[in-house]
Simulated scan of single mutants.
Amino acid sequence: MKQKPYLSLEDVKRIAAAAEAEALAHQWAVTIAIVDDGGHLLWLQRLDGAPAVSAQIAPAKAHTAALGRRESKVYEDIINQGRVSFLSAPGLSGLLEGGVPVLVDGHCIGAVGVSGVKSSEDAQIARAGIAALV
């Protein structure tokens, strides 16, 4: 039987703390969501001042990155390049930059989604969180 790594609660807390530190270092009010490999929510943290809608968008970005096993920006780019029919992809709603998969030994074990500032800054925060696992 094959085995694969998974996100432990300790891992999730480490990712969340590093992502929060990155956001606070830049005074960015965001929501941070962490999901498992099936896109199921493990962590949701809305920093003071983060827009209410970010609590819906961040988990959607994370879900999309986990299921697709790639950054959610890939889907945003596909749509922006004219393939708008991709908007009808079943089960995917976070088709904006800011969702980043957590990849370990070739396995996608989850994802981090961030929302509240520019999409590139959201992704920067997510990547900073994931970097804490290394």
Rank of each mutant, 00 (worst) to 15 (best):
G82D: 11
A33H: 09
V35I: 08
Q56E: 10
A128Y: 05
L92F: 13
R14G: 02
L9Q: 15
R83G: 03
K118S: 09
P5Q: 10
S93R: 14
V117N: 07
G38I: 06
C108V: 14
L95D: 03
D11W: 11
L96P: 02
R127Q: 15
L7A: 07
A65H: 01
E121A: 11
H40T: 10
S72G: 09
G106M: 09
G91S: 07
I109S: 07
D122V: 06
V104S: 10
V112P: 04
G116Y: 11
K73C: 00
L87G: 13
L9R: 15
V53R: 14
V84Q: 14
I125A: 04
T64V: 08
L7D: 08
G98I: 13
R69V: 01
V114H: 01
S85W: 06
D122S: 01
K73E: 07
L9C: 04
G98P: 00
K73H: 06
V134A: 05
S119H: 14
A17P: 05
R46H: 04
R83V: 10
V53N: 01
G91Y: 04
R70F: 06
N80F: 01
A29Y: 06
Q27V: 09
A123D: 04
E97W: 01
Q3C: 07
Q56K: 08
K4Y: 09
V117Q: 11
N80I: 00
V104T: 08
A16Q: 12
V74F: 13
A128D: 12
A21I: 01
I15D: 08
R14C: 02
I109C: 05
N80R: 15
Q81Y: 06
V74Q: 11
C108K: 02
G116Q: 10
G113T: 05
A60Q: 13
H40A: 07
D11P: 02
K4I: 09
V114S: 04
Q27E: 02
I15K: 01
R70P: 03
A23Y: 02
W28I: 08
P51T: 08
E10N: 14
I78E: 07
A19G: 13
R83M: 14
S115T: 07
A55Q: 13
L92D: 03
A123R: 11
Q56A: 03
S88A: 15
A23S: 12
L96M: 13
A21F: 02
S54H: 00
Q56I: 04
D122N: 12
D36N: 15
V53H: 07
P5K: 11
I57D: 00
H26F: 06
L67G: 09
D105R: 13
A132I: 09
S120K: 14
A60W: 06
V117K: 10
A89C: 09
Q3H: 14
G116A: 03
I130E: 04
G110Q: 09
S54Q: 03
W28N: 06
V114I: 10
H107K: 07
